[in-house]
């Protein structure tokens, strides 16, 4: 569908040509990532309220899937940027912010991996997860809006949502875009549940096997 839908031929501003179709693939990555990090945060808080291995596993795996989608978002963004902006990485505030946010989440896994005690790992991980989640807001939502950016939504640009400018999409494009967001999110949820089932099985084995 992303390849077939009619696109507005005369876009205002920079001509994007067919690469505007990347909106159906690149942007849903970030939507999905935000959703998974939110789920991860919820399970981290749940763990702190009522410690159970299940909550810890859910939290860690959803963070993992979120990081996967974030990395894919960055790579697809770089491919698109090379075509449209002339370089894979041009130090756009949104690019840098996303990279910082992902590095913070990489540190989450390093922190978890460095602790051997299961309970300590889960508790420290949950606390760190909450901090990491709230670092997403300045890096992804606030800073890119405050400075000039190549992405839509920066200062001096068109304004509005920094991830996508709704006004630039035709009704037909929106008909593809929102199902794409839902689809990629559901795909990620399925991948996470597979991983979670595996992790729970493995834990059971370690405890009883």
């Amino acid at each position: 569908m992303g390849f077939l839908v009619k696109i507005p031929q005369q876009l205002p501003g920079v001509p994007l040509f067919h690469s505007i179709r990347n909106v159906f693939f690149h942007v849903p990555m970030w939507f999905a990532m935000m959703i998974f990090f939110t789920v991860s945060l919820i399970y981290a808080i749940k763990y702190l309220i009522k410690p159970s291995t299940k909550h810890d596993i859910y939290s860690a795996i959803y963070a993992k899937t979120g990081v996967l989608f974030g990395v894919l978002g960055i790579i697809t963004g770089a491919i698109w940027a090379n075509f449209q902006w002339g370089a894979y990485w041009s130090g756009d505030p949104k690019q840098n912010g996303a990279a910082v946010a992902l590095l913070i989440y990489f540190a989450y896994f390093i922190l978890r991996g460095s602790l051997t005690d299961e309970e300590k790992k889960a508790r420290v991980g949950a606390v760190y997860n909450i901090f990491a989640f709230f670092m997403l807001f300045p890096t992804l939502w606030i800073l890119p809006r405050m400075v000039e950016s190549l992405h839509p939504g920066g200062q001096g640009g068109s304004g509005g949502n920094p991830a996508l400018n709704g006004g630039d999409m035709s009704a037909e494009m929106r008909m593809v875009f929102w199902p794409a967001v839902i689809g990629f999110t559901l795909l990620g949820v399925w991948m996470s549940t597979l991983y979670i089932r595996f992790q729970i099985l493995k834990d059971k084995k370690l405890n009883y096997g």
Binding site: L16, H18, S19, N22, F25, L68, L72, T76, I79, L187
Partner: peptide, 17 residues
Amino acid sequence: QSIYIVMAVVLTLMLGI
């Protein structure tokens, strides 16, 4: 060219997943 960029993006996603 632009359509191949979309192709590259989709292939990257598939590869990652």
